[in-house]
């Protein structure tokens, strides 16, 4: 399309998928609220909502893939996708920024303040330290996670997965489908490996270190940040898996592969967040 200006922009047909998605989120929201409060109906609603959501995602993305294969997307649409993915990732950055902000606030402001002179009035034997070990709400002693065991291995895993996804991209642009397929497959594998390791790490933290979500400022920031990151890894792995399947089915060519790139961008974003986590949650 270079040279000629695109005069027509793709506008999809009316679609019921959004409405299905709205119903799914309604069931999820209501179901979660009920379930958390121990109302029997809640669990059922949650499962229903999740199933509808999965059904919707299959249907909706199926439509998008069909439109893409039918050649409906051109330069302008592609451009839109790029902007949109960029801004979506920005929103994710802000989401994580909120939790990192909390971590810094707790470490730099609230914990030291609770240990300062004027708070001796309230907590005579509070010791401001990180990881925090004293405090009226910290009932069970715990140990902190060390950075140089599993977390360091996980860092290596994620970094290598960044490499494999790039290798796959090279394969795609050079038309080497084999390299593309194993690069992607490798990335999915490494992502899965990461998740397994993290599950193992959590089991270790819970059972051997007695570190729980309720272990005061350390436990809560640890699980919140690594947990949300883990969810993003899971999502990224699923996306990469879908892209991999499409690759195996012969989708994408050297010019036309934004789904692949979007997945790769997302993956790199998840990578970078991990590096920050590694430094601020595990190491320092």
């Amino acid at each position: 399309m270079e040279g000629t200006r695109q005069t027509h922009y793709f506008v999809p047909d009316p679609s019921y998928w959004p409405l299905v998605g709205a119903i799914a989120l309604f069931c999820l929201g209501l179901g979660a609220a009920l379930a958390i409060n121990g109302v029997a109906l809640g669990g059922g609603l949650l499962v229903t909502g999740a199933s509808i959501l999965v059904y919707m995602l299959f249907g909706w993305f199926g439509d998008v893939i069909r439109e893409s294969l039918a050649g409906r997307y051109h330069g302008k649409e592609d451009h839109s996708f790029r902007w949109a993915m960029g801004w979506f990732i920005f929103s994710e950055v802000m989401f994580f920024a909120a939790f990192f902000g909390v971590l810094f606030y707790v470490r730099v402001i609230s914990v030291p303040e609770l240990g300062n002179f004027s708070h001796k009035l309230l907590y005579p034997d509070f010791e401001a330290a990180w990881p925090l070990s004293t405090g009226p709400g910290i009932t069970a002693p715990y140990e902190a996670m060390s950075a140089w065991g599993l977390p360091a291995i996980n860092t290596l895993i994620l970094l290598s997965s960044g490499v494999t996804v790039t290798v796959a991209h090279w394969g795609l642009v050079k038309g080497k489908r084999g390299q593309l397929a194993w690069g992607l497959g490798g990335t999915v594998l490494l992502g899965t490996l990461f998740l397994v390791m993290q599950g193992w790490e959590y089991a270790h933290a819970l059972h051997e270190l007695n570190l729980t979500f309720a272990s005061g400022a350390y436990g809560m920031t640890f699980y919140m940040l690594t947990g949300f990151h883990g969810l993003h890894v899971l999502l990224g792995t699923v996306i990469l898996f879908v892209v991999w399947m499409r690759v195996l089915k012969g989708h994408f060519d050297a010019e036309h592969h934004f789904a692949f790139e979007a997945a790769a961008w997302y993956w790199h974003f998840v990578d970078v967040v991990w590096l920050l986590l590694f430094v601020f949650v595990y190491w320092l």
């Binding site: 994710e92 989401f95 939790f99 009226p136 709400g137 309720a214 400022a217």
Partner: peptide
């Protein structure tokens, strides 16, 4: 800013139901 709002109400949720202390001095929160 909307993601930040989503984050902060999520922390209220975990404080309410999952024993965290984000906004509770007892565990080092504020």
């Amino acid at each position: 800013v909307m993601p930040v709002l989503a984050g902060v109400v999520t922390m209220v949720l975990t404080d309410r139901h999952f024993g965290t202390h984000f906004f509770n001095a007892a565990g080092g929160g504020d």
